[in-house]
Every structure is written in C-alpha cells, then in structure tokens.
C-alpha cells in the first residue's frame, strides 16, 4: 500500500505541476493588464506601477511562479485584489455548500447507479431489460441542467413543494437543508448514475458469459446466489471505476447546478471570478479540482485492489 502510494508520486506530481502551470498562465495569457484593471479606469501611470510593484508583476515569471507555489504550500492561497479578501476565506465560506451538494450527489450516483445497473443486469425477462435499458439511455442523454430545470418547473413553479432557489446549510438545520439540497443533488446525480448503471449492467452481462458462472450453475447454485456471489461480485470493480470517473463530471456539473438553483457555492465563485476577471481565486479553484480528481483516481485504485485479489498494489 505504502509502496503503491510512493509509486504514484511521480505521476501525481506531474499532473499537479502541469495544472499549476496552466493555472499560473491564465491571467498572463488573458488580454489586458491586471494592474490596470485593479487600479481603476482613471488612474495614473504611477498608481499602476505601484500596484505592479506590490503584486510583483515586474519580476521574472519563474520567480513569480516559485513564490506562488511556495505560498500555496505554506497555506497562503493568495488574496482577491478585487474583493480585498483572502482566497482562503472566500473558499471557506462556500466550501460547505458545494461539499454538501457533491456528497449527496455522489451518494445518489452510487445508490441509483447500482440499483438500476443490477436491475438491468440481472433480469432475465428480455422486455424488462430492454425497457429499463431505454429508460437508462434517456437518463444518460438528458444533461443535468435540463433535469434541474424540469425539477424547478415541476416542484418549484407549477407546484410549490420544495424550495428551488437558495440554500440552508445541512449542518444548521438538517430537515430544511435537505429540502434545499435534494433537487439539485438529484439533478446532478442522474446522468452520472445512468452512466454507472450502464457500465455495471454491461459488465454483468459480460460476466454472465464467464465459465465460472456456468460452474456455479453446475454446482446447483440458485439464480439469486449466482447473481450476488459470482456475477455482481465480479462486476463491482467496474462500478467503482465508473463512480470514480464521474466525480470530475459531478464537480463540473455543480457549477451549472449551483447557478440554476441559485446556490452560493464554489461553482458560483468560479463563475463570478471569471466574469470579474479575479484570477487569484480562479487559479486556486482550478488546482483544487484537479487535486480532487487525482485523489479520487488513487482512491479508486485502492478500492479496486481491495476488491480483486489479483491486483496487488505496488507490484
């Protein structure tokens, strides 16, 4: 396990390094001068130069990059020059909202995905399988924001059953918080869940043709036992990989879902920082997304190794 993690270090470092270059390059590739933007429309050249000096923009790029990275490692995420607040506090304020959304959505992906996948993968009735498969195809084809809009129309506008705009922290009031959370989380989770279900189902159908499933049948094992002990047990790995791959999509989808449901999360922060060209915030957010994606990938591999005795971590 430890050996495996050590082995992973070079590729993790490489991915993070490459992403940090991208993040670092963003404000410098964008047209316009950050200092000019900050100084305001009618400012003197001296004022601009002062800001430039303060931000260290006139030093060599390598030095700037180095300072930025060292700062990140020391926990100094930088400061939003526009809002005059530290990036850490900006993110801290909104982290909870996004975490709640992502956590519930992931839970729903696992629940809905496996249930639907197992249902399609284990039914022996052709029409039931075809029907469920078709439903699944539609869930995959409908993007989360359309589901979100439909949910808003049905639950929030046409009927006023659930709140569809704003949020209440789950920690502060679980009942109300959940009411605010369930619709966006469901909308976010549905297409990913359908993808997980599709992969799980395909894997189960493939595993069904394996000789060892026939061997179990020839032992006299019941259909239920064969599905659970042999088919499903050998297919969960695929589901785990699928869930891991969907995390990135969930994070990206959260940007839109937060906008639609008017939730004040990290996604909204990212959008507004693009609109206001507040790059310090954006840079950190981008790195964070990549970091989470990398961690999820490693976690996936660890879980996979736990499920399959043939996989030995670190070998």
């Amino acid at each position: 396990m430890v050996r495996f993690l050590i082995r992973k270090i070079p590729s993790v470092v490489f991915v993070l390094f490459a992403s940090s270059i991208v993040a670092f390059a963003l404000p410098r590739l964008a047209p316009g001068d950050v200092a000019v933007t900050l100084a305001g429309t009618d400012s003197t050249a001296a004022a601009i130069a002062a800001i430039r000096q303060e931000l260290g923009l006139n030093r060599p790029l390598v030095v700037q990059y180095w300072d930025w990275i060292v700062g990140l490692f020391q926990g100094n995420l930088g400061e939003s020059y526009l809002l005059r607040r530290s990036v850490a506090s900006l993110i801290g304020d909104r982290l909870g909202s996004t975490l709640e959304l992502a956590a519930l959505a992931t839970l729903l992906v696992i629940l809905i995905g496996t249930t639907l996948g197992v249902a399609v993968g284990s039914t022996r009735r052709r029409w039931a399988r075809a029907g469920l498969d078709l439903v699944n195809s539609f869930f995959i084809a409908i993007p989360s924001f359309l589901t979100g809009l439909a949910l808003i129309l049905v639950f929030g506008v046409l009927n006023r059953w659930l709140p569809v705009s704003g949020e209440v922290s789950f920690m502060a009031d679980p009942t109300i918080g959940f009411q605010f959370l369930i619709l966006p989380a469901f909308a976010l989770a549905l297409p990913s869940a359908a993808v997980v279900a599709r992969l799980l189902q395909a894997e189960m159908l493939a595993v069904k043709n394996e000789d060892y499933v026939d061997l179990a049948l020839s032992k006299g094992a019941s259909a239920t036992r064969i599905t659970l002990r042999h088919v499903l047990r050998n297919s969960v790995g695929t589901a785990v990989v699928a869930v891991g791959l969907q995390i990135g999509n969930l994070l990206a989808g959260a940007v839109i879902i937060e906008a639609i449901f008017n939730r004040n999360g990290l996604g909204q922060l990212a959008v507004s920082s693009v609109q206001t060209r507040d790059f310090t915030v954006l840079q950190v957010l981008i790195l964070a997304v990549v970091f989470v994606a990398v961690i999820c990938q490693i976690l996936t591999e660890v879980v996979l190794a736990g499920l399959d005795p043939r996989i030995k971590l670190g070998e």
Binding site: D211, Y212, A216, S218, G220, N234
Partner: peptide, 24 residues
C-alpha cells in the same frame, strides 16, 4: 433440476483459467 446439478451429475469445464471465480 438445480438439486440434481452438482449432486447427481457434475461438470468439468474446458478452460481452467476461466472456470474458477477469480475473487473467491
């Protein structure tokens, strides 16, 4: 029939590489 499979008549398969459940 299920009661008889394995207890009265048993089957041995061609490919031992794939006939055993890899995670059991």
């Amino acid at each position: 029939m299920r009661r008889r499979r394995g207890s009265k008549v048993a089957l041995v398969f061609q490919d031992p590489q794939s006939a055993l459940n890899p995670v059991m």
